[in-house]
């Protein structure tokens, strides 16, 4: 126990704290950038899959294929694919970009699915009624369907964003300096495993728990009146 306390006091040096703090911000930034890009792309994909807006079937199939395929590839394999695709194209990009693109790919497929489920939860009669009022397709989507659908879309998307934060841990395989990588480095510098990985487990928890609570709160708050 005494040794452990000594180690903790060594661990709490200025440089280690800065190092871990940066890694924490890096993880947060990676998740944020990735999930925002992913959400935008996912919105696009979900809209493309609406039959009423996109009468051109092959485009819908393409969007469906994209979603189905990217949902079914593990994050690690996706990471490797993105990495080697950039290598294949001979483009030299920072590792952060590769990690962020992978997060965005994962996020886009899952968001597209969530958003589609939300849009489909709105009854067809709403579309028909709006069409009868001579509203345009996108106008219906924006003014009639989305205001009702976002209640269904937001909670699972929030829950999924927690999953994204957690999957960024795998990006440590590329050597981007996020939390898991920081723990590995500190471990190699001689700090014990319990201390290094324990610390970052707590930090991940600090990052994810508020999101989980927010998702749970929103799920209760946004539930349609009849389902409370």
């Amino acid at each position: 126990m005494r040794e452990f306390m000594d180690e903790v006091s060594r661990f709490l040096s200025y440089y280690d704290l800065i190092f871990i703090g940066r890694a924490f911000l890096y993880t947060a930034l990676l998740s944020l950038v990735g999930s925002c890009c992913g959400f935008v792309v996912g919105c696009g994909l979900a809209i493309v899959r609406i039959r009423r807006l996109v009468p051109f079937a092959p485009l819908r199939w393409l969007a469906t294929a994209y979603v189905e395929i990217f949902r079914r590839i593990p994050f690690l394999v996706k990471l490797m694919l993105v990495l080697f695709t950039f290598q294949f194209m001979g483009v030299d990009v920072p590792m952060f970009v590769i990690a962020a693109i992978t997060v965005a790919l994962a996020a886009s497929a899952f968001c597209a699915e969530n958003i589609r489920a939300g849009l489909e939860s709105i009854h067809v009669t709403q579309w028909e009624a709006a069409e009868a009022l001579n509203m345009g397709g996108f106008s219906i989507l924006w003014r009639v369907v989305l205001p009702q659908a976002w209640r269904v879309i937001i909670p699972p998307s929030m829950t999924y964003s927690v999953g994204l934060v957690k999957s960024t841990a795998i990006a440590s395989q590329l050597g981007v300096p996020e939390l898991t990588y920081a723990a590995k480095v500190l471990n190699q510098r001689g700090f014990s495993v319990v201390l290094c990985f324990g610390t970052i487990l707590v930090l991940y928890f600090i990052l994810c728990w508020p999101l989980t609570l927010l998702a749970a709160y929103l799920e209760k708050r946004l539930a349609p009146p009849g389902h409370r």
């Binding site: 927690v162 957690k166 960024t168 841990a169 994810c208």
Partner: peptide, 16 residues
Amino acid sequence: FLNTPLLVQIFFFYFA
């Protein structure tokens, strides 16, 4: 367990 990454959990089991 819901709010921490699986990878780090396994690291913990594997090394600690």
